[in-house]
Simulated assay, not measured.
Amino acid sequence: TAAFLGGYRLKGFAQRPAVGTRGGILLLWNEDHVRVESVQYGDYTLSATVTIISSNISFKLTSVYGPTRNNLKEAFFQEMKDQKPANNVRWLVTGDFNQIYRARDKNRPNANRGRIVRFRNTLNFCELKEIHIQNRKYTWSNEQSNPTMSKLDGFFCNEEWDITFDKHILHALSSSLSDHCPLLLANEDGPRRPRTFRFENFWTNMPGFQQVVQEAWNETSAHNEPYQRLFHKLKKTSQKLRSWSKSLFSNAKVQLHMALEVILRLDEAQDHRALSPAELDL
């Protein structure tokens, strides 16, 4: 599962298995960019020391999956307190907390005030502050026609982390795949994605594939050394296939991104008003 989700870039992983359908935590990372050490597994948390290779800056990362049952909340809050690192250690905490710390983080007036106070006290003890989401009020919906919505997911950090990574920004993405919306924490410029070649298996069934590969493979190479000639042929073939696939499938990709953008806009609208029947059907 980790290899399927992470692909060839995110080869490093640590996991806390789910119990039934809940409680699972999966941490994936690119070993070319970060070093992850000292992984610790708790009942509701997975923590590790993360070092950015290019700068040698380290911080503690804690991923959480908070329990839904009220009688387990206190154990969850205590485990968060136990994870608090020593002074001057940068700390970033993220995940599905299954808990709000402010009444306005739920669109219903029936929030449990006692649990809110206990969670807020936990955050204060841990000296954590929220990294605010730029474009959404809530991160979860029960997806009913008149939905209950809450901000159950988020990022919190201590002062040391915030000062070191002072150009971060947090955005919610489209909730097209889940009743929770994904969150993307990045620097102001956004994540840099290297241009890489990915071969798609369905290409072989598309008209023109064989011709593109044959023409690229048969191009004259100035290299005599066998390995260099092979590298040249593979490089030329990947370039030709990339151009061919872009012209063939660009419209489908545009439509996909348009659909995700529409869903995100409806997510944002639902934070402030009920969606119309036509919008729900869409």
Rank of each mutant, 00 (worst) to 15 (best):
N146L: 13
P147N: 03
N205G: 13
H168G: 11
M206N: 13
N205T: 13
D162Y: 07
P191V: 10
I131T: 05
N187I: 04
F209D: 05
E130I: 07
H132E: 13
E130A: 04
M206P: 02
D162V: 00
N201K: 08
D189L: 12
L177C: 14
F202Q: 06
Q144G: 13
N142I: 01
P207D: 14
W203S: 03
I163M: 15
F155L: 02
E219R: 13
N201Q: 09
F156T: 03
Q210N: 09
H132V: 14
E143P: 01
C157I: 01
D189K: 13
T139M: 06
E159H: 12
E200G: 00
D153R: 01
K167D: 15
P147A: 03
H180F: 09
R193D: 00
S145E: 14
A186H: 12
L184H: 14
L183A: 02
I163A: 15
N142S: 07
S178R: 07
Y138K: 04
F165D: 07
S221C: 10
K151T: 08
C126L: 10
R192N: 06
T148W: 03
L184W: 06
M206E: 13
S174C: 09
D189C: 12
I163Y: 14
Q210E: 12
T220A: 11
D166W: 05
R195N: 00
L152A: 04
F125D: 15
L128E: 06
Q214P: 01
N158G: 14
E200K: 06
W203A: 04
N205M: 12
A172E: 10
Y138S: 04
I169E: 12
S221D: 04
I163D: 14
E215S: 09
H132C: 11
S174Y: 04
A216R: 02
L184C: 08
R193I: 02
E188A: 14
W140S: 08
Q214K: 14
L173G: 14
E188V: 06
